[in-house]
Design a protein around this nucleic acid. Structure first.
Length: 495
RNA sequence: GUCCCUAUCGUCUAGCCUGGCCUAGGACGUCACCCUUUCACGGUGAAGACACGGGUUCGAAUCCCGUUGGGGACACCA
């Protein structure tokens, strides 16, 4: 059995969105399932489009998702890229470098080999000539592409030139995609595409084939947008006499609008999701489900990491594109949030409280934490649940004070009676508060619900809060009483 | 223009390969009710889909052909 080796090979041209990371998840899942290796390779063959920080972003996000990279760029390679930071990993592997811009000689070597064997040729056509040719073809409604002008011109290696692949004019090419089955191109006219640029960098087509072969990749997972250029890769493998990898072309993930994922679609990238209070495991679980399902009649959709690894398969990957539905992610995040151990939830939630600039005592927060945990779906909702603990003047939702059969008089009665009862308490505990407040409702012939609304607003300012008695207990007798008095004055004044 | 991929509830999907168990199952969302100190959780229920047209067959969501819709590729981008 050959070891399964997969790779995530992003080009550092910007910040990956969750769709990009799904490709990484699947590749990682596949490798882990078979006890193989997952590698990270940086495809930076387009110098113009490389953006600083993109590599760091990718590595840090993979780490956040808990995806360990078995082979990848070393610290030194990262430094050569201008990507070095505290805590940068120092990855290694037997087939490095894992950064394409550091592998230039190898691509050159292969390109020259192709020329020597007659599979490729040098071309010194200028961009202007190419552009004119393309325009003419478009005008004649022909499919655009290089005519092959330099095929027989024996362009010298001394002048600036590119190296083009001499594609067969008529060929039937086919392969078996791990997700889509057999795909056939029947006698299509293929154009002589550039393999090696005049700036000394390879084109993607050359680089992937060479690297996947050199790094002994067994399965290449990539987006469907690559499906159309697979014949080029297949032909390259053939010319080089190499065994092609198994290709798996993944369906795309669209936004709710059906268009490509973007900031607008509410999906954005994992970093933003993290800032919005989403959990890595929830995102990973959710995103994995766009385009994959366990099949075999299984309804399961909440998976531990281990289950994901054992149940994942390329056969279970869908062929049709999917939509990223933020509403379902929100639900799933809430689920993961509630499943968190309280000791894991507290520090996470507390960091969001601090970030929101809410200054309260951590001990108070911890008391309420279990109640908060079960009612928030994202971490960003946490601050709003505890900000009433601050010693700041409350902005009360007075208009919501009297609802469901309550009127201003009832409100006053509730507040007055509650004040009396609460004052009597020597032990300001949850159970005591509970008793006291319930008796108030009973005495006034009110249902607890509407009656407590008034108290809730009086003391916390809002209609939605953690449970009342717990909140009161944490706040302490003094603050609760004074807030009720304050409200009473307000109500009195409005009369 | 040429080629390739694709098509089940609003969304993610099961079922399709190996036709009958499908009056098409689950989940999110929506709505209603229940639980309930608000909210959330939880529970119960409802509405909601095989793109269309032909064929093959006793029988098709499932197989075949076509149409339409959606996506992608055809660069010295990836």
């Amino acid at each position: 059995m050959v070891e399964v080796r997969t790779r995530f090979a992003p080009s550092p041209t910007g910040f990956q969105h969750v769709g990009g990371f799904r490709t990484a998840f699947y590749a990682w899942l596949l490798a882990k399932k078979h006890g193989g290796k997952f590698l990270l390779r940086i495809e930076d063959t387009d110098r113009e489009r490389s953006v600083p920080g993109a590599v760091r972003f990718i590595i840090e996000e993979l780490k956040w998702f808990g995806i360990e990279i078995d082979e990848g760029p070393s610290r030194e390679e990262l430094r050569a890229l201008g990507e070095d930071w505290d805590g940068a990993p120092d990855l290694h592997g037997p087939y490095g470098p894992y950064v394409q811009s550091l592998r230039l000689p190898r691509y050159k070597e292969v390109a020259e080999e192709l020329v020597a064997k007659g599979f490729a040729y040098r071309c010194d056509c200028t961009p202007e000539m190419l552009e004119r040719e393309r325009l003419e073809q478009m005008a004649r409604k022909e499919s655009p592409g290089y005519s092959g002008y330099c095929r027989t011109r024996n362009v010298s290696a001394d002048v600036p030139h590119v190296i083009r692949f001499k594609m067969p004019h008529q060929r039937t090419v086919s392969f078996v995609d791990a997700i889509r089955g057999r795909v056939v191109w029947d006698s299509i006219p293929l154009k002589d595409t550039v393999l090696f640029k005049s700036d000394g960098f390879p084109m993607y087509h050359l680089a992937v084939v060479v690297d996947d072969h050199d790094m002994k990749i067994t399965h290449a997972l990539r987006g469907v947008e690559w499906l159309s250029s697979t014949p080029i890769h297949l032909l390259l493998y053939e010319a080089l006499g190499w065994e092609p990898v198994t290709f798996a072309h993944l369906p795309v993930i669209n936004g709710t609008d059906g268009k490509k994922l973007s900031k607008r679609s509410g999906a954005a990238n994992s970093r933003e999701l993290r800032d919005q209070g989403y959990l890595a495991d929830a995102i990973m679980n959710f995103v994995s489900l766009i385009g994959w399902a366990p099949g075999e009649g299984s309804d399961q959709e909440v998976f531990t990491r281990e289950e994901l690894i054992s149940k994942f398969s390329l056969e279970g990957v869908n062929q049709a594109s999917g939509v990223f539905d933020p509403a379902k992610l929100l639900w799933m995040n809430g689920l993961y949030m509630r499943n968190l151990k309280i000791e894991d939830f507290v520090p996470l939630a507390w960091s969001f409280v601090e970030r929101a600039g809410i200054s309260i005592r951590k001990a108070d927060f911890e008391i309420l934490a279990p109640h908060i945990q079960e009612r928030v779906k994202v971490l960003t909702e946490v601050p709003g649940m505890v900000d009433f603990l601050q010693d700041k003047p409350l902005e009360r939702q007075m208009d919501a004070m009297s609802q469901k059969g309550m009127d201003i008089d009832k409100v006053k009665q509730v507040l007055t009676r509650a004040l009396e009862r609460l004052e009597e308490l020597t032990d300001f505990s949850v159970s005591e508060i509970d008793q006291a407040l319930r008796s108030v409702a009973v005495e006034l012939g009110l249902k607890p619900g509407p009656a407590f609304v008034a108290l809730r607003i009086a003391v916390t300012g809002k209609t939605v809060t953690p449970p009342l008695f717990e909140s009161f207990a944490v706040l302490g007798k003094d603050r609760v009483l004074s807030r009720i008095r304050e409200t009473l004055n307000l109500v009195q004044g409005s009369n």
